[in-house]
């Protein structure tokens, strides 16, 4: 009884905060645009009874999804988001792994302080941190002034309003999400395994690749998911740091929702984005499970 109750809590949570909102968005994606409050039709009229419910379902269709295939803007935006999120995730991993590694190898009395330093940026609003990057990267900004002062460049670099600024913003913002799970995995690692590997003739480098990296795999995967998933739908960073030619699905969604007031198409865009994210994750987990079963 108690066990069932304990399991019910997370399921109820998922149901309320994931499944219900998902169904609402799915329903809007099957609706039609209207000039009303809310700006789509049909809305469920329970007072009309069974007849009303039947009419409601009869009015839903997939034409918004068909519409998405008629314009190459959408798949280009999905692809470009995938690319920006993918590249940013790799850069975050390349930057985050050494940091996590150094933290895990630091003297134990230092680790809480280092952990604190990684979390510290969260004490400042995300928006303010992104805005301060605008101050750093702009053509009159700190970075350009510094480089020009050092005589490394004679003309200010145009970084702000380009994709490079978006990459910098994403990597900076999501770095802690990469470091923390990798650190957690590395910290648990038994160092005697490395000694054993070296005793058996591994160089330090190959011991790193053959022992440390596989043992931190779960941390790497968790970190990559934590960075990739929010990055792909990112809106704030590309709109503040990116230029007018930075194409990301978050911005396309914004335009559908705000400029066109087309909630149904905006919802269809969101549902497809969800599928793009969920399908590979589910496949991946299945694969992992199979591998685990094969081992067991």
């Amino acid at each position: 009884m108690r066990k069932a109750f304990l399991i019910a809590v997370p399921y109820l949570w998922l149901l309320l905060l994931f499944l219900v909102p998902f169904l609402i968005v799915l329903k809007i994606s099957l609706s039609d645009i209207a000039l009303a409050i809310p700006p789509y039709t049909p809305t469920l009229d329970v007072s009309a009874g069974w007849q009303g419910i039947r009419e409601f379902f009869a009015a839903l269709d997939f034409e918004n999804y068909v519409f998405l295939t008629t314009d190459d803007l959408y798949w280009k935006a999905y692809l470009s988001s995938l690319q920006i999120a993918g590249v940013s995730t790799l850069i975050t991993l390349a930057v985050g792994y050494p940091i996590a590694y150094a933290m895990a190898r630091a003297a134990p009395e230092w680790r809480p302080t280092l952990l604190m330093l990684v979390i510290l940026p969260f004490w400042t609003s995300f928006l303010i941190r992104v805005y301060s990057w605008m101050g750093i990267l702009s053509s009159e900004g700190v970075l350009n002034q510094l480089l020009m002062g050092l005589g490394l460049i004679s003309e200010p670099l145009q970084i702000l309003s380009t994709n490079i600024a978006v990459y910098i913003g994403i990597v900076y913002t999501y770095l802690p999400f990469m470091i923390l799970p990798i650190y957690a995995a590395l910290e648990k690692m038994d160092e005697s395994l490395l000694e054993a590997a070296e005793d058996l003739g591994c160089s330090r480098l190959s011991a790193f690749w053959l022992v440390t990296v596989p043992l931190s795999k779960s941390g790497i995967i968790a970190g990559c998911f934590l960075v990739f998933i929010p990055a792909i739908g990112e809106f704030v960073i590309p709109s503040l740091l990116g230029g007018s030619n930075t194409l990301m699905i978050g911005k396309v969604l914004w335009e559908e929702f705000f400029s066109n007031r087309d909630w149904p198409v905006a919802s269809a865009v969101a549902i497809i984005l969800l599928l793009i994210l969920i399908v590979p994750i589910v496949l991946f987990q299945r694969n992992e499970q199979k591998a685990r079963e094969a081992e067991g």
Partner: peptide, 15 residues
């Protein structure tokens, strides 16, 4: 409105 928004996206992003 959709034509205008689409054109504006094209103007801004080239797509």
């Amino acid at each position: 409105q959709r034509t205008v928004t689409r054109l504006w996206t094209e103007i801004k992003s080239g797509v």
